[in-house]
Design a protein around this nucleic acid. Structure first.
Length: 123
DNA sequence: CTTTTTCCACAGC
DNA sequence: GCTGTGGAAAAAG
């Protein structure tokens, strides 16, 4: 199902090549349906990374948009940072999310737009 | 409710 | 070493 990820006794483990990590991350992102988001924290928990590392990896992605890195937000619901074509542009990130049907409550993503990634993967 | 402080884990200088 | 990140959690206001 997910490349480079093995699940054993209730938790996920990544084969540790950095290329594999990228593949796994990409696969996880593509599980998130349109109109939903997940958080840096949740991905961090799944892949045993600090949330900041997740952000760095996402920034380093070579295919923005097709790899939906914009569907990852901060755990408090604000969208967090976003860099598009070497430009920092969180505004664009929010716009993309709105287009996809994510609900906002003020500056934050509404709780009903979250996707339970961990639960989906681990039951 | 908001802002600030502390910690984070790594890369680059 | 110090600084800067696409962050989090606790503390303070």
């Amino acid at each position: 199902m997910i490349p480079c990820l093995e699940l054993n006794n209730g938790s996920l483990r990544v084969a540790d090549s950095s290329k594999c990590l990228k593949e796994a991350l990409k696969a996880l992102l593509q599980l998130i349906p349109l109109g939903n988001v997940t958080t840096y924290k949740e991905i961090g928990n799944l892949l045993a990374l600090s949330p900041r590392e997740v952000g760095k990896l996402l920034k380093g992605n070579d295919e923005p948009i097709v790899v939906p890195c914009h569907r990852v937000v901060k755990s408090d619901g604000r969208v967090g940072g976003y860099t598009f074509r070497s430009r920092s542009n969180s505004f664009l990130k929010e716009k993309l999310l709105r287009i996809e049907g994510v609900f906002f409550k003020g500056t934050r993503v509404s709780s009903r737009s979250y996707y339970g990634l961990t639960q989906e993967l681990l039951g």
